[in-house]
Design a protein around this nucleic acid. Structure first.
Ligand code: SF4
Ligand code: SF4
Lengths: 131, 131
DNA sequence: ATATTAAAGACTCTTAATATCTATAATATA
DNA sequence: TATATTATAGATATTAAGAGTCTTTAATAT
C-alpha cells in the first residue's frame, strides 16, 4: 500500500501553481519539465485536478493551468482525494453490522485524513517561497 | 491506494486465534474454510505473521497456529506491519532536506499509525466474543 | 488562418497482488 | 519405525492497477 507517484506530482504542481502571479496560467510542458515528466502523462493528472475544481484550465494559445479561486482553502486532502479517489483504505466487502474491525481501521484513517485536511497548500507554498 | 485483502484475512485470523483456548493450535484448513479462502494462499499470509512473531506455528500432526505469548499487547499496527511492511505510505525518492511536503504527509500517517498502535486485538476479540 | 494548448481515447508496459501447485521438513501417534 | 498430518518454501500463473505513450479533437489567442 503506497500513495501513487501521481499524488506526489500533483502536490508539487499545486505548490508551484500557488506561487505564480495572479491570473497567469502555466502550460503543462513547463510543469512537466520542472518535474522531469512526460507532458502527456502529467496532463492526465492535471485533468483530475481540474475536474475536482482545484485548478482551472484554459486551452489554446497562452492557455494552461492556474489555481482555482478557492486557492486559500485547498488542503492536502483535497489533492489526494482528487488523485487517489475518496474511498476508504480499508473496505470489507461484507460490511457486517457494527463491525469492530472496520471501526478501528476507519477511525485510524480518519485521524490521518483530518490532519491532511487541516494542512493547506498555500501555507506550504508560502514557507517554501520564503526559504 | 488500498489495504491488501491479505491484511483483512490476517486480522480476522488473529481475532479468531485470540478466542481459542490456551495452548490449542488451529490448522490452516480450518482457518481458510472459515474465511472461504484457499489454504495455500492463507498459508503465505500466516507465515508472515509467524515471522513477525505474532503467532507460533507447529508442523506435523495436531500442529497448526496459535497466538504467541505476547498475546496481550498485539496491536492492529503490528498485524498491518507484518503483512504490508513497515514503510511509509508517502515516500519521495529525492528526500530534499527538510521537505515540507513529506513532513505533512508523514505526520498525518503517524496519526493513523498511533491510533492503530493503541488498538489491541485482544480487546476486539473480547468484545466480539461477548456479543 | 495559424499556432498553441488542454482533453480524451486507445493502447502498451511494468509492477504488485492474488492465487495455485508441488516438494520438503517437522511432528504426533499407532 | 512407519504413516498420516501439517507448516514452509519455491516455482509459476493470473489478475488488476499504475505508469506512460501516441494520436486525434476541440478550444483559444493573435
Ligand atoms: S467482521 Fe467486519 S471486517 Fe470482518 S467480514 Fe464482517 S464486516 Fe468485514
Ligand atoms: S520537495 Fe519533498 S516531496 Fe518534493 S521532491 Fe523534494 S523531497 Fe520530494
Amino acid at each position: 500500500m503506497k500513495y501513487s507517484n501521481a499524488t506526489n506530482y500533483a502536490l508539487h504542481t499545486m505548490v508551484h501553481l500557488m506561487l505564480q502571479p495572479e491570473r497567469s496560467s502555466v502550460g503543462v510542458q513547463e510543469l512537466a519539465q520542472m518535474q522531469d515528466l512526460s507532458p502527456t502523462y502529467l496532463s492526465k493528472i492535471l485533468t483530475k485536478l481540474t475536474k475536482a475544481g482545484l485548478i482551472e484550465s484554459t486551452p489554446g494559445a497562452k492557455g494552461g493551468y492556474k489555481i482555482s479561486r478557492t486557492k486559500h482553502n485547498i488542503s492536502f486532502l483535497d489533492v489526494i482525494y482528487a488523485v487517489e479517489g475518496d474511498t476508504n483504505l480499508f473496505e470489507c466487502s461484507i460490511h457486517h453490522e457494527g463491525c469492530l474491525i472496520e471501526n478501528v481501521m476507519t477511525q485510524a484513517e480518519e485521524n490521518m485524513k483530518s490532519e491532511l485536511e487541516s494542512k493547506l497548500l498555500i501555507d506550504i507554498a508560502k514557507k517554501a517561497e520564503s526559504k
